[in-house]
């Protein structure tokens, strides 16, 4: 029972993102494999200890669970997590940060002058989203506190 407990604890603690479609595909494949294995194994029944282990429902359940965990972990490790995906520069940086020598040099190393221009344009677009202009009259009135 210990391996089962270990697996249960492992599955309980693991931060996995399960994809039902992939799980079903893995499970279907496994059941098919087991069906084949069982028919082969029945021919050689009693020939070795391994066949008795395979026939054991507990061992089968353990193996299926282990394979599901491995399959899920493989899928998870290949799927980029939301938290680690790097958002585009324009989404995360302020205009001032986008236009520092450091950021522009980095843009230049990435894609030459076109990339520098693209970053400058993104910064300019952000600047266009400024609050509505305030009139001089309104400004004076606000300064007077009236």
């Amino acid at each position: 029972m210990r391996p089962l407990r270990d697996i249960k604890r492992f599955v309980g603690c693991a931060e996995v993102h399960s994809i039902p479609k992939v799980n079903k595909a893995v499970l279907d494949g496994l059941m098919k494999e087991f069906a084949t294995t069982r028919s082969d194994a029945s021919l050689r029944a009693g020939r070795n200890i391994w066949s008795s282990v395979v026939h054991s429902p507990l061992a089968q359940a353990t193996a299926v669970a282990a394979l599901i965990v491995i399959g899920t972990l493989v899928v998870v490790s290949r799927t980029p997590r939301e938290s680690t995906r790097r958002p585009p520069v324009a989404e995360t940086l302020s205009v001032a940060d986008m236009l520092t020598v450091g950021r522009l040099n980095a843009a230049c190393r990435r894609g030459g002058l076109p990339e520098v221009e693209r970053q400058c344009e993104q910064a300019a677009q952000k600047l266009q989203n400024r609050p509505e202009r305030i009139s001089m009259e309104q400004l004076i009135r606000e300064m007077k506190g009236t």
Partner: peptide, 8 residues
């Protein structure tokens, strides 16, 4: 950290 605000 020099900011080149006018380039674009």
């Amino acid at each position: 950290d020099i900011t080149l605000t006018h380039l674009s």
